[in-house]
Amino acid sequence: MSFTTPYFTLPKFVYFKPKNIEEALGMLKQHKGRAKVMAGGIMLVNLMKERQIFPEYVIDLKNIDELKKINVTENGIEIGSMVTAIELQNSKLIKEKCPALAKAASFMGDRTLQHTVTIGGNISVGMPSTDGLPALMSMDSVLEVRSSEGKRFLPSSELVLGIGRTSLKEDEIITKIIVPNDEKVMGTYLKFINASEVAIATVAVTVHHEKKKLALSVGAIAPRPYYFDNSSLQWNWEGSVAENIKRASDVVYKAVQPMSDAVASAEYRKEMSKILTARALKEVFGGA
């Protein structure tokens, strides 16, 4: 993504608006390699405007109601991939059970775009600064991915391979995000931006007090988010919170190898990963 759009128009394509998943998957199979799926469409439209992609077919998922639902099942909380950022923020269930995601949703573009941006679209663009993915990783969520051949379950941590590259095949669609349904979940998401709308660093934290489980993900600093859990952070549930936070921040600082780009240098991103980690943990444990 170059963020550079000299063009006002889009290349030619044929637009489909299937009514259900099966129809969408059928179209994807039929036009494999020549079709692109449209969720919110922000990234898709921009990539077409940038003349980076030239799909012959655009398959819009906005008419598929079953992708817009949030359900609680025995598998956990199932979030349809077409649930919008606004809906995530407004959902009582998400706020209570997936606080890191609810917070991350409030950063997915500006408030107007959040009516359009979907969680599935947000994570499948594969940009380092994607807000949804660190949150989903901190919640150890799993993605339900479907194609006309069937479905598979993909840990959210395995979705992104590199900048703009995901492990989704050309005929696959993310249909659901499945999050463990736990009680007493705490979490947050912090995004550090300055002099650019592209994040310098992001941190998502999810803590299950009862399970004594903590997971933290650092995004925007490298092509893929970093993932840390209790053990890698050397978290000691019996020890003092202050020491834990200090130690966890140091672990993150030493572990990450950020990239340098026009937004920030590697050195600065490394330092900010530490500060942001501590701030996120302070926020979560401060409120406990």
Binding site: F3, A195, A262
Partner: peptide, 23 residues
């Protein structure tokens, strides 16, 4: 004072001709 700057690549190309990275 705090945000704005056209950034140039090594070849003199403007790297941020947009309102995302030119804030």
């Amino acid at each position: 004072a705090l945000f704005e700057q056209l950034k140039f690549g090594e070849d003199g190309k403007v790297l941020n001709p947009n309102l995302i990275t030119y804030y």
